[in-house]
Amino acid sequence: MHKTNEEAKLFVNRLINDLAGKRFKIVVCPPFVSLTDVVEITRGTNISIGAQNCHFERSGAFTGEVSAAMLKAIGIEYVIVGHSERRKYFNETDEMINRKVKSVLSEGMKPILCVGETKEEREKGLTFCVVEMQIRHALYGLSRQEVENIVIAYEPVWAIGTGVVAKPEQAQEVHRFIRKLLSELYDTKLAESIPILYGGSIKPDNFFAIMAQPDVDGGLVGGASLDEQFVKLAQIVQSFAV
């Protein structure tokens, strides 16, 4: 919940210039009120636009909510689903997240599925159990063809907005676990093709070491996406692009 519509337009115009020619996928997810203008500004550029959330129903008496169909109609390509803040502050359950994933896919968009454990869960040694259950629930009832269009983001809750970042080896072990789980649920080829992002207090001074891990494909950037740090992070990703 940052930036007015005018601030968002100014910022994205700067990003278009600073990120031109980058050889990797760049997705910006502004608040709902800025989506229409930002989609128009970025049309024909290398920046795709995503939404931060959606409702799981296509329409109905859900005052204040926005459906996947509405987002698709204005040109949105990605939707963040199951972010830890949605789980925590708005009590989103695994069942709701599964329905949102299906709704996003049904409209031809790509869900960015967020999973991750709390500090208490990590301290109790439950990291893999929590992540596995979140993924199994989120992907329940989905075909291999549908899962091909999903992006997964591992965001340890204890590292979001805290200034604490997972060590590169901590990020890698969970990303490797997620890829192994996808291989078991579907197959190895699919598991290797799914982008798995890391999110959690990413900054230019810690991101290179995380990106260097073999199973980290990119970042889900929070606070550092609001200023020039985002461009610096993009430059780091560019150094790994092939």
Rank of each mutant, 00 (worst) to 15 (best):
T4S: 09
E6Y: 10
A8V: 13
F11A: 00
V12M: 07
L15S: 02
N17M: 06
D18K: 13
L19V: 07
A20M: 11
A20K: 15
R23H: 12
F24S: 05
V28R: 02
F32C: 06
L35A: 06
D37P: 04
V39F: 11
T42A: 11
R43F: 08
R43G: 01
R43D: 02
T45V: 14
N46I: 11
S48M: 14
G50F: 13
A51Q: 11
N53K: 08
N53Q: 11
N53A: 12
H55Q: 05
F56W: 14
E57G: 00
G60Q: 10
G60T: 14
G60D: 14
G60K: 03
A61D: 09
F62T: 07
E65V: 00
A68F: 02
A68G: 05
A69H: 06
I74F: 05
I76E: 01
V81N: 04
G82T: 09
H83Q: 13
H83I: 08
S84M: 04
S84D: 03
E85P: 00
R86Y: 02
R86H: 02
R86L: 08
K88H: 15
Y89K: 00
F90P: 04
N91E: 09
D94G: 03
E95P: 02
R99C: 01
K100D: 03
K100I: 00
K102E: 07
S106T: 07
E107G: 05
K110E: 15
K110A: 13
I112W: 08
E117T: 06
E117M: 04
T118E: 02
K119S: 11
K119I: 15
E123P: 01
K124M: 03
G125K: 01
T127Q: 01
F128R: 05
V130E: 01
V130I: 09
Q134F: 13
I135M: 05
A138K: 02
L139N: 01
S143M: 11
S143V: 04
S143C: 11
R144Y: 03
R144G: 12
E148V: 15
Y154L: 14
E155C: 10
P156D: 05
A159Q: 08
I160H: 00
V164D: 11
V164Y: 15
V165H: 10
A166Y: 09
A166M: 09
K167M: 10
Q170Y: 15
Q172N: 07
E173A: 06
V174P: 00
V174I: 01
F177W: 11
I178E: 04
R179I: 04
L182C: 10
E184Q: 14
Y186A: 11
D187A: 10
L190M: 07
S193A: 15
S193F: 13
S193L: 11
P195R: 09
P195M: 12
L197N: 09
G200N: 08
I202P: 00
K203G: 04
K203H: 10
P204I: 08
F208W: 05
A209P: 02
M211V: 13
M211Q: 10
M211K: 12
Q213H: 12
D215V: 13
D217V: 12
G218V: 14
G219R: 09
L220R: 12
V221I: 12
V221S: 01
V221G: 00
G222S: 07
D227Q: 09
I236Q: 06
Q238P: 04
Q238W: 15
F240D: 15
A241E: 14
